[in-house]
Design a protein around this nucleic acid. Structure first.
Lengths: 236, 236
DNA sequence: CCGGCAGTGTACGCCCACGTACACAGTCGC
DNA sequence: GCGACTGTGTACGTGGGCGTACACTGCCGG
């Protein structure tokens, strides 16, 4: 067989699988490139595939009266398409799309579900991630209610920065961030301006650079740390 | 054996189980009464049991700087303690407690997880519910960002009313509702006052009566309908 | 080299919800 | 019957974020 060694996998869920599960999955893994705006699942449409990101970030948003709001994000720590695991064939009222471009792999829904049926070890890995994802969404629900644009802005930058890895600079416009946070573009400009004046970040024309992670964590709400803790726990 | 017939079960998840799974579970089901304020799981503490409500409502809240916010609710359509299924032994940053008193059953975590390990049909039922719960939390995240106190108030009353069954009147103070919505008590008084003047509800000293469901649905945000649709789908 | 446009800065009035405060009204215990 | 307390009504000033608008500035393409 000529599949990549599991040790070379970059997605942390793929790395966490027991060898036999990985070998079962590997022949069906298809490498793909994710471009900004690629839609992995449209609103109310079931996932045709499950996606393992190696780099980049996917965003899950709900569109409601009053705008669009991000309810969760996924990077190389997890898997996009939990719906396939929970209830294949049923769509959810969220839209999943690529927010930061990157590389990754996908597997057809049928292979994924049959492996989930067969392997307790596989289910264990997926369940642990599902727990962490649910925690993220719940924390976001509370955060959206109680925290300021500036705090949520800092949190979002940190979460994204974690996922673009060692890249200090990544592409991001105020407009896009406003869309993600469910606020006005002008609101982001003000919040980001404060963070920039404080020397925590720097940006210019669609590119943002994180200068001071620790400072950014101070400017962010506690939600960042809480979600992060449960993501880190996954990779024991 | 002298266990209750599955057909007599009131919890919709218990009813949905295949016979063999129910019979495996039944000897371990322990009938209990839920009183207002009973804590089913404290913050960061794992569930010792999984709970099947027959009546009443449980509320899942996150406490953050800026107050406490409800991120989800569970009634007789589901199960309290998905954490046991996902990652037994790990606590989540949410507090689960009884919001409307009622009756139900519980089973120890070990029995629940071993049944989940063994039975694909059981997992299917739990997974479907997990999907619907995740949808609820995600919708709440968006709703908390975008919708007014009055809309969310109406939505909350509808969701709770669905779960107290044919009871038109149930106990509820403005103070408590404010706590759930993460807003001021005075804010709820104003919002509820509007709903009352419109003839949709009536309340007095801790008791609320739903007078006009259809009208209340009109006053609520679309989030009610979206979540409801996915809950109804469970009981095919 | 020069539009044109995308990205950003900043301002205005507005409104919802905030924190706080106080008055009043049922209801319960004595 | 009388306090005392819980639940509700309502008011005030404050503030964050809204919708909108307009000006400026790199950058890209013709």
């Amino acid at each position: 067989m000529d599949y990549p060694d599991q040790k070379s996998e970059v997605n942390r869920l793929l790395r966490a699988l027991v060898r036999k599960d990985y070998e079962r999955l590997a022949p069906h893994l298809e490498s793909i490139e994710f471009r900004v705006g690629d839609v992995l699942a449209a609103e109310d449409e079931p996932f045709a595939h499950v996606f393992f990101l190696e780099s980049g970030v996917a965003s899950i948003t709900n569109r409601i009266s009053g705008g669009t709001v991000e309810v969760g994000t996924v990077g190389n720590e997890g898997v996009v398409g939990l719906g396939v695991y929970f209830d294949p064939g049923v769509g959810i009222p969220s839209r999943t799309f690529i927010q930061v471009p990157g590389l990754g792999k996908r597997v057809d829904a049928a292979t994924f579900t049959s492996l989930a049926d067969e392997s307790p070890e596989f289910r264990r890995v997926i369940n642990h991630y599902a727990q962490s994802y649910l925690i993220q969404v719940a924390q976001t629900a509370a955060c959206n209610r109680a925290h300021s644009v500036e705090e949520r802005c800092a949190r979002w930058l940190l979460m994204t920065h974690d996922r673009v890895g060692d890249l200090l600079t990544f592409p991001l416009t105020h407009q896009f961030l406003a869309y993600m946070l469910g606020v006005r573009r002008a609101g982001v400009t003000v919040a980001a301006g404060i963070l920039q004046k404080a020397g925590l970040i720097r940006y210019s024309r669609g590119n943002i650079t994180v200068l001071d992670r620790a400072g950014l964590e101070g400017a962010s709400c506690e939600c960042y740390g809480i979600v992060r803790k449960h993501v880190d726990r996954l990779t024991i």
